[in-house]
Design a protein around this nucleic acid. Structure first.
Lengths: 202, 202
DNA sequence: CAACTATGGAACACGGTGTTCCATAGTCGT
DNA sequence: ACGACTATGGAACACCGTGTTCCATAGTTG
């Protein structure tokens, strides 16, 4: 009882039992998300699927949203690594291709994360990550505010991905990459390259 | 007790009392949304604000989501009317300007609808309306699938609006319209118009 | 083996949902 | 103004999910 400063539930102990519980919760959530919208899941559903006790849930996460955040954040980090090059004018094609290829390879999982009720959370997390990168690279003097460029690229990319994941017989990766580059990436990159808010013609 | 086919709560009676209740609920929701995220609102909160009985709520809406849908749908229809011309290549500027002007005039309300927890619902409803329009106008042979064009324009526009509504000291309407046209509308319209790669110039 | 720690589970308080039943007050046709 | 109709408010209720506390137990570590 020495220190009572923080009761943060994210202690992430190294105890095997703790780790097992955490992983059981994470994969249980992913399994359930394949058949049920997130909002409709109760904590009891999740612990039942995970095979752990109800009380134990709260020893790891304060709410089910927190669990979702943790699960989604990890998957998103993976995807984001691949997507970053797409922000680079010269690596655009490679980045875009890697992105769609990866999503296609894990189609089912991304359907549950992007098409289902978790979409809002996922989108927010992506934006958070993207903002970090954009802050370093962004040109403060660009015609297009960095914030907006980030917003439109992340938003457009996720919209495109979500649409793609909904299709019963989806367009080929090549085609999606082409669309992505031309309608999402290129317009923003072009707008970014254009400086000259001051000297306006006529 | 003759027919029991449907218990649809959307009877929308013409009885003055019924109408008063409906309107009280709608404006109560809008008031509460200005201070509280939608998910955190209980039906009890809403009926208290509206000054009607708890039971009465269920005589008009099965869930609070249904109430939100009804309220949002009406506001969205108004905004959409103004936004439609923006989809037209030649009315683009007028449509875009009308859109941002209208939102600015009702800034507070659109903040509650677009920035808060209702954002998902609003986005979905916008898309639904846009799809109707796009289906009639869309060229099935265009390089860009109509669905995707719609998706990107609606998504991009709402992203832009949401960002704008978040700003403490927002950019002027003129500037937003310029951004909107160049980074959201133009790229899609261009992609729609041509089947070949094109050289864009500043 | 012994100290530690995570777990499972029961019991509980609390709050929101949605229903039923009924007395009452508002509405409408005549 | 009167009577038939209908929406309302409210109480009582069943039900379910959340989140806590307490404690016995099983797993972990040295």
């Amino acid at each position: 009882m020495a220190s009572k400063i923080k009761k943060s539930v994210s202690e992430s102990s190294t105890d095997p039992r703790s780790i097992r519980s955490q992983e059981a919760l994470a994969s249980a959530l992913l399994v359930l998300l394949e058949s049920t919208p997130f909002e409709q899941l109760s904590i009891r559903d999740i612990v039942a699927e995970a095979g752990i006790g109800y009380t134990t849930f709260f020893r790891h996460h304060a709410t089910k949203e927190e669990l979702l955040d943790a699960v989604a954040a990890e998957q998103i980090r993976c995807l984001f690594q691949l997507a970053v090059p797409a922000l680079d004018k010269y690596d655009m094609h490679a980045g875009s291709t890697a992105l769609f290829t990866y999503v296609h390879a894990h189609r089912r999982m991304w359907q549950t994360l992007l098409v289902g009720g978790a979409a809002g959370t996922v989108r927010a997390e992506f934006l958070r990550l993207a903002r970090e990168v954009a802050l370093q690279r962004g040109d403060p003097n660009a015609w297009l505010p960095t914030e907006i460029g980030t917003l439109l690229i992340v938003g457009g990319t996720l919209d495109l991905l979500t649409w793609w994941l909904r299709q019963a017989s989806p367009l080929p990766i090549k085609r999606m990459v082409e669309l992505h580059e031309r309608v999402v990436l290129k317009p923003v990159i072009d707008a970014n390259a254009r400086k000259l808010p001051q000297k306006r013609k006529a």
